[in-house]
Design a protein around this nucleic acid. Structure first.
Lengths: 149, 149
DNA sequence: TTTCGATGGCTACAAATGAAACCAGTTTGG
DNA sequence: CCAAACTGGTTTCATTTGTAGCCATCGAAA
């Protein structure tokens, strides 16, 4: 009889790994600032790009509109970002971190980098290369057929 | 100023990839049988191993107890599995797929394998090897320090 | 034994998520 | 010019998830 070995099934392995890593990293921003993942991604996106619209944020960080909307609302409530209406299109808002938001971002960046470094530190150089190539390959394999007919 | 490039941040990349793949694959078991992911994993685990306790299922498929509990309850409601109390320890229940459950499992296995095959089909042999090695390396890097002092 | 800490499994409540509907505002085609 | 289709963003509601606490049972230690 034909069976499936869950432990070596790629979707499962990927998910489990990502879940473990993400859960571990979430401690960093949760413990430090009580952020949720969508909030962290929003902070990160704005810190990186300077100013973005909600839609752009959603695309960059692969989040559903509603996640973005709620994350932005919360960061605004904390006064970590401000919205400035677009001149030409009144539906659009440009989001920018405030001083406080930027401070939080600046504090998070080294922690994030350290986390990633530690994660990779356990691997050999060859292994690091393997992940880089493997992930890139899978990523491009996926995104290319996202656009259906 | 120091910034973090979200798009190349490993935890983010992993999560996004896993999420996309998992979401795509979930269509298979959702469309076919209206299963949730925990339910699918439960089915898969039992199909693979024959008989397991809820705790064992949780460990094998990396699911929280409550997810397991609820998934098992649902599969039992569908009469896809039965519980048999352990002889020695009356807290423990052994879970086994019924004929119906097994039929569903048998139907799913080829679909799962086909999905994985297609996912990998877009990659070169070298790239496939890279993922295999990369994932394995990260996995062992993680599990080894899960056991804190 | 009795008692006390673990363990298997469930449930109740709170928080996070997704789908779909919605509201403005904008574009397009007649 | 105006209706219809579309887009940015929010809200509502149902579903899913996690946390914490519960219950029953078990094992060990007194």
């Amino acid at each position: 009889m034909d069976i499936l070995e869950l432990e070596s099934f790629l979707p499962y392995r990927l998910y489990r790994l990502a879940d473990a890593v993400s859960r571990e990293f979430s401690k960093v921003y949760k413990d430090r600032h009580g952020l949720t993942r969508p909030e962290w991604r929003t902070l990160s996106g704005l810190g990186q790009r300077g100013t973005m619209t909600a839609t752009a944020l959603g695309e960059q960080s692969a989040m559903h509109k509603t996640k973005v909307s709620r994350a932005v609302a919360e960061l605004e409530r904390r006064r970590w970002l401000v919205r400035t209406p677009d001149e030409d299109d009144r539906r659009v808002e440009h989001l920018t971190l405030t001083k406080a938001g930027l401070a939080a971002y600046r504090e998070m960046v080294p922690l994030a980098k350290a986390f990633e470094r530690e994660l990779l530190a356990k691997l050999s150089v060859g292994e690091r290369g393997s992940i880089a190539r493997g992930l890139a390959a899978l990523e491009s394999g996926l995104t290319s057929d996202k656009n259906g007919p």
